[in-house]
Design a protein around this nucleic acid. Structure first.
Length: 491
RNA sequence: GGCCCCAUAGUCUAGAGGCCUAGGACGCCGGACCCUCAUUCCGGAAACAGCGGUUCGAAUCCGCUUGGGGCUACCA
């Protein structure tokens, strides 16, 4: 397990397949990925599915798809295999059984025959007395005859936690964290049905998979002494631990569905680019040494360092995510943006087939959009004549009594330009007309934008008209004039 | 309740005792540019939770308080 004289770094992301890939999970995976790549180590994906009752069908595949969409690829995992497989805990039961038997044989763990009802009652009693709810250790002190009398009854296996002493978690981010054994109870290692419990399985697998660094959410910090106790009982060397702060909702509570989008899939559906989401997530809890916030995955790999991980929980901010997305919308290649835009155009009912080149239209529009959904919406008029005109706009720009006449005159004047239909030529034509009519250029521009796009906002009119082409432009200008004459709009 | 973690503007953060008159980013407000919107560019408001120590000196170290979060399952 050595490369270049140092231990090969091995980290893991170990989700439970109970739902979609959450942004908190995505960020944990991202930090693991960056740490592994930075140290030229291995990134392992392990599925923690010991509790089959909580399993949500399809979530494992969805979670993997989410990770892949973000560019977070793993070296070992359930789908790609590896030397330390299998990578689903449900397929590793025999391994757990072996260690469980070892602990019992060595007297480091014992059978507990208390029923869930008894334990529940015990906890309630303790709570009522203002005591911390903890397992009393009743079955720990069963005599041999008492034990023999209960043999065959349903039981769980509990770890004998040392009576006194302390376990110290040496956290790479937070420093040493001490836990008195007196506050821990003899926790369950293995359920009645024989399946292992998280704290046991995780400790076993981190060792069995030669994990060197356990990088996970802060919610696991309190569990860590239990896992260390298991590892020590089994004689395992310990990995290093690093607990990263949680991501909270704007009201400082745990992020949940009621706060809007929380899964990677939902952000994709909103029109957030994976590149932007990753970059944003990177900034939640980690800060680049040079202060440059916009960085690619490759740059992040080079710069990443656990030392710069924040200790405080971060509140997720949709506004900054959207700003980040806008940055990527402008910086990414047109090809990449168009590729990602596909589904959003379809959803907006836009068929870019017959119209102007999508690249030209996107080039004019992308700096005005924050999401792909917005971009698709702003692109519609390039491929579809306006079905109606912005109401406030019409009241403002179609109101002048000469509007229809002017639009018609404009169309006539522009007609000969069809062969050389450029933004420059159009600009000059508008300039001339404005002079002839003794009006400001803007007085012509606004009604025309409304006639051509149906909207009052958008790209520069001449650029937009160039891309749209003479046919569509002249047609739309004449149609607007007609609509105004018929009193359908304006006035 | 017990144990654990955390605490710089609305939000993300820089800051490892003097470099801090606390820096950057998003957002917000104002201005410039402009055919609109957006971009861009200028400018602005906005923070070291409180109280005690330690020190010549504290955002930085220590303690307490307050506040937030986590764990406390035969969930992970």
């Amino acid at each position: 397990m050595r490369a270049g004289g140092t231990v090969l770094v091995r980290v893991r992301y170990a989700p439970s397949p109970t739902g979609a890939l959450h942004i908190g999970g995505a960020r944990t995976a991202l930090f693991n990925f960056l740490f592994a790549r930075h140290h030229r180590g291995r990134f392992v994906l392990r599925v923690e599915d010991t509790d089959q009752t909580r399993l949500v069908p399809g979530s494992e595949a969805a979670m993997m798809a989410g990770l892949k969409s973000l560019g977070l690829t793993w070296d070992e995992g359930p789908d790609v295999g590896g030397d330390f497989g299998p990578y689903r805990q449900s397929e590793r039961l025999s391994l757990y059984r072996r260690y469980l038997e070892q602990l019992e044989a060595e007297g480091k763990a014992y059978r507990c025959y208390c029923t869930p009802e008894e334990l529940q009652a015990e906890r309630e009693r303790q709570r009522a007395q203002g005591l911390p709810p903890r397992y009393s250790g009743r079955c720990r002190h069963l005599s041999a005859t008492e034990r023999a009398a209960r043999a065959g009854r349903p039981s769980v296996l509990r770890l004998k936690v040392p009576e006194g002493g302390t376990t110290v978690v040496d956290d790479l981010i937070r420093g040493p964290v001490r836990f008195e054994h007196a506050v821990l109870d003899d926790f369950v290692l293995c359920k009645t049905d024989g399946t292992p419990v998280y704290n046991f399985a995780a400790a076993v697998d981190d060792h069995a998979m030669a994990i060197t660094h356990v990088i996970r959410g802060e919610e696991h910090l309190s569990n860590t002494p239990k896992q260390i106790l298991v590892a020590e009982a089994l004689g395992f060397a310990l990995p290093q631990y690093a607990h990263v702060p949680m991501i909270l909702a704007p009201d400082r509570s745990k992020l949940s569905k009621r706060h809007g989008a929380t899964s990677v899939e939902e952000y994709r559906a909103q029109g957030i680019l994976p590149e932007a989401l990753v970059n944003y997530l990177l900034l939640l809890g980690w800060s680049p040494p040079d202060g440059n916030e916009l960085m690619s995955l490759e740059q992040a790999v080079a710069a990443f360092d656990l030392q710069r991980v924040q200790h405080t929980a971060a509140i997720y901010d949709q506004k900054k995510l959207e700003w980040m997305n806008a940055q990527y919308l402008r910086r990414l290649s047109l090809e990449r943006v168009i590729e990602a835009l596909g589904p959003f155009l379809a959803a907006a009912g836009v068929d870019p087939g017959g119209g102007p080149p999508l690249a030209a239209a996107v080039a004019l529009t992308r700096e005005r959009a924050r999401t792909l959904a917005e971009l698709a919406d702003q692109l519609t008029f390039f491929y579809r004549a306006p079905e109606r005109y912005d109401l406030e706009g019409a009241a403002k720009y179609f109101r002048h009594p000469d509007t229809a006449e002017r639009l018609e005159a404009l169309a006539e004047r522009l007609q000969p330009l069809a062969a050389a239909w450029t933004a420059l030529a159009l600009g000059e034509a508008f300039e001339e007309l404005a002079r002839e009519w003794g009006v400001k250029r803007a007085e012509i521009i606004h009604p025309v934008r409304l006639a051509v796009t149906g909207r009052t906002v958008g790209p520069g009119l001449f650029e937009l008209m160039e891309v749209l082409g003479p046919g569509a432009c002249l047609d739309r200008i004449r149609r607007a004039a007609q609509a105004i004459r018929q009193g359908v709009v304006g006035r």
